[in-house]
Structures are given as structure tokens and as C-alpha cells.
Simulated assay, not measured.
Amino acid sequence: MKSVLITGASSGIGEATAREFLAAGWRVGLVARRAEKLHKLAESHENAVVLAGDVTDAARMEEVFSEFVGQAGRLDVLFNNAGLFGVAGPIDEIALEDFEHVMNVNIRGMFICARLAFGHMRKQSPQGGRIINNGSLSAHNPRPGSVSYTTSKHAITGLTRTLSLDGRPFDIACGQIDIGNARTEMVEDLNARILAADPSAELMPTMNVKNAAESVVHMASMPPSANVQFMTVMATKMPYIGRG
């Protein structure tokens, strides 16, 4: 049975992706701070492993990875998904502590998890595995007022490229999925902000989060000899090409 560890699994893209992996028969490690939501997700799924923890807590994440590998036998895939948007606005209206909070979760947290996954995949037998980082369309083109989020997601693209290069000798593949406007709590919050600023504004086009989740499972299911380096999956009519 293949194994996957998913961070940010209690809601949004992480939760939807966990459901898809469980339906496909994978052993799934569920990582997030909200243990009660993870337990609810894991109900009636014998292959689900609840691993509550904050991705920015390096010591706890080390325990989480060791516990999951101990139960699953190996780590085939990490879906490095946990992240947040943060406070929106022009840079001079963003408090330094709000910027640092986004960097802590979106960069430091993803670095911690990628580092642990890489270490386990390098040491296990047979060697290798796959790391899938959740980027964003903002890793390429920003939306207005997203300086903290966009900065963090550009950093993740650098992380993805470096892991792909450094993982080659150890059969560790790394890819990035850039998702645009899947119907999640984050996108609903962005739409609420748009309406608050202008009640007559047209809401952003969205897509079913299941479409994004199925794309992650596709990336994870590639044979070791193949890798989806970058995938963009988005609501068809959202302003991505030409925005920014």
C-alpha cells in the first residue's frame, strides 16, 4: 500500500486531497493543528492516520514523520500543502508581524516538512519518493494586495526547483501544483473581502476543489521514472493570463 503524508489536511485542498487518496486505497497521514477535524475526517477510514501538529513546530513535525513512517513502513509521497493567505493590502499597510506570520507558515513550515520527507526518502529502502509542494498562481503572477502571500509562493517555486535537482541522486522527485480559485475557505474569504469593499463587485470564478485534489493524486501516482514538474489547475475564466 502506498503512503502519503498531507499537511493542512483539516480543511480546503488538504482535506479534499486526503479524501481522494483514501478513496484510492492509500495509507494517508493527516497533519494539521485541529485534531478534532482530523478525527472527523478519519472516521470509517482504517487507512487514515491522525497526526495533529503545527508545521512550524520542528520538534513536533519530527515526531509526526517518524510516527507515520513507523506505521506505514515508508513514506512514498509528501503533499506539502499547509499555508495561509494572510492580511491583504499594499505593502505599507502590512504589519511586519503579519508578514512574518505568513513567512513562518508558508516558507519555514514547508521547509521543515520537505526536509524531513527528504531525509526519510533518502534513507528508506528502496530509496526515493515524491514531494509535491502546493504553490499557487501567485507563484507566477500576483493578485492585487497579496505581497506576503506572493512573496512566500515565489519562494516555494525556488524550493521545488532545488529539491528536484538535489533529489535526483536519491530517486526523490519534486513537483509543484499551482491551484487557482478552488472553492475553499480561503477563496470564500477572498470573495467576502471583495464584496465588503464593493457590494456590487463580480465574484471570482471558481472550480470544485475536487478537481484540484484529483490533480494532486495524479501527480502522486506517476511512476518513479516520470514527474509532473509543474501543474497549473484553475477555474477556466479566472484572470490569470494577463493579470498582475
Score class of each variant (00 low, 15 high):
Asp178Thr: 11
Met110Tyr: 01
Met231Cys: 06
Thr7Met: 07
Met207Glu: 02
Thr150Ile: 08
Phe111Asn: 07
Val55Pro: 02
Tyr240Pro: 01
Pro205Asn: 02
Gly83Pro: 15
Val69Gln: 13
Val31Met: 03
Ile94Val: 03
Leu84His: 10
Val64Met: 01
Leu116Phe: 02
Gly128Leu: 06
Arg19Gly: 01
Phe230Ala: 11
Val102Phe: 05
Asp178Val: 01
Ala196Ser: 04
Glu93Tyr: 04
Phe118Thr: 03
Asn211Tyr: 13
Asn208Glu: 15
Ser11Asn: 12
Asp198Ser: 04
Leu96Cys: 08
Ala196Tyr: 08
His120Trp: 13
Leu116Arg: 06
Leu22Ser: 04
His140Val: 14
Ala52Ser: 15
Asn81Lys: 03
Phe111Val: 12
Gly25His: 08
Ile112Trp: 08
Leu75Tyr: 09
Gly14Ala: 05
Leu190Val: 14
Leu22Asn: 03
Pro205Gln: 05
Lys153Phe: 13
Leu75Pro: 12
Met1Phe: 02
Gln71Tyr: 03
Thr7Val: 06
Gly109His: 00
Ala114Gln: 12
Thr7Gln: 04
Arg168Met: 11
Ser146Ile: 12
Ser200Tyr: 04
Gly53Trp: 03
Thr206Gly: 00
Val187Trp: 02
Ala139Cys: 06
Pro223Gly: 00
Met222Val: 04
Glu202His: 04
Glu97Pro: 05
Pro90Ile: 13
Gly145Tyr: 12
Pro223Ala: 00
Asp189Met: 13
Phe170Cys: 07
His45Glu: 14
Val28Ala: 00
Ser66Lys: 15
Gly14Arg: 00
Pro142Asn: 05
Ala213Val: 01
Asn106Ile: 05
